[in-house]
């Protein structure tokens, strides 16, 4: 087995009922539970994934979306290298609230280079209210990764997490500093050994 390169902290946020916990369950256990209870406070799951030959352990923090929990959950934002913003493509309100969530992350995140990903969930449902173009536009405006997904049909879920992790690994200074490891990443292995001249 590959040695674990690092442990990354990923955060999932968004309005209540947009399917944050379901996305996470689909990713970690490849399950969909219609009986998924509403999260209280924060919850937590771990999964190891291998990307480009680097095995990375993910500690994914799932948060409650209710307004009232919003003073409680941001404490757990600290140290996160990646954040997934989730909205419900069938509920416009959850999309318009994204700016609030962005502000939350900007205020409470401790890593300025944190990688942001936008996920439009529940594309399996019929009564879509937010188009893919709108999502794309929003993501572009705020320098985020974007994907539409369905936790129910598993569309886009795994891809979303993998993209995010890959981006985190490629972002310099985002994750190395924690344990002082540098340059072990296979992506950067095209390291030409020119001699130093001084």
């Amino acid at each position: 087995m590959d040695a674990v390169l690092t442990t990354l902290k990923i955060l999932i946020i968004g309005d209540s009922g947009v399917g944050k916990s379901s996305l996470l369950l689909r990713f970690t256990d490849d399950k969909f539970d219609p009986e998924q209870a509403a999260t209280i406070g924060v919850d937590f799951k771990v999964k190891a994934i291998t990307i480009d030959g680097n095995t990375v352990k993910l500690a994914i923090w799932d948060t409650a979306g209710q307004e009232r929990f919003r003073t409680l959950t941001p404490s757990y934002y600290r140290g996160a290298q990646g954040v997934i913003f989730v909205y419900d493509t069938t509920q416009r309100e959850t999309f318009t609230h994204l700016t609030t969530w962005l502000t939350e992350v900007e205020t409470y995140s401790t890593k300025p280079a944190i990688v942001k990903m936008l996920v439009g969930n529940k594309i399996d449902k019929e009564n879509r209210q937010v188009s893919r173009e709108e999502g794309l536009k929003f993501a572009r405006k705020h320098c985020m990764l974007f994907i539409e997904a369905s936790a129910k049909t598993r569309d886009g879920v795994e891809c979303a997490f993998e993209e995010l992790v890959e981006k985190v690994i490629q972002t310099p200074g985002l994750w190395e500093a924690e344990d002082g490891r540098h340059g072990n990443v296979n992506i950067h292995s095209t390291n030409t050994g020119g001699y130093c001249q001084c």
Binding site: G41, V42, D43, F44, K45, R78
Partner: peptide, 30 residues
């Protein structure tokens, strides 16, 4: 303190039971 709490949460593991306990632990404000 936050780190300690997060540590406790992590130690509960990502099982269903762990989730339940975490939720209970945080249900005081609810």
């Amino acid at each position: 303190q936050l780190e300690e709490q997060a540590e406790v949460f992590s130690k509960l593991g990502d099982t269903k039971e762990g989730s339940k306990v975490r939720a209970k632990m945080q249900s005081a404000s609810l």
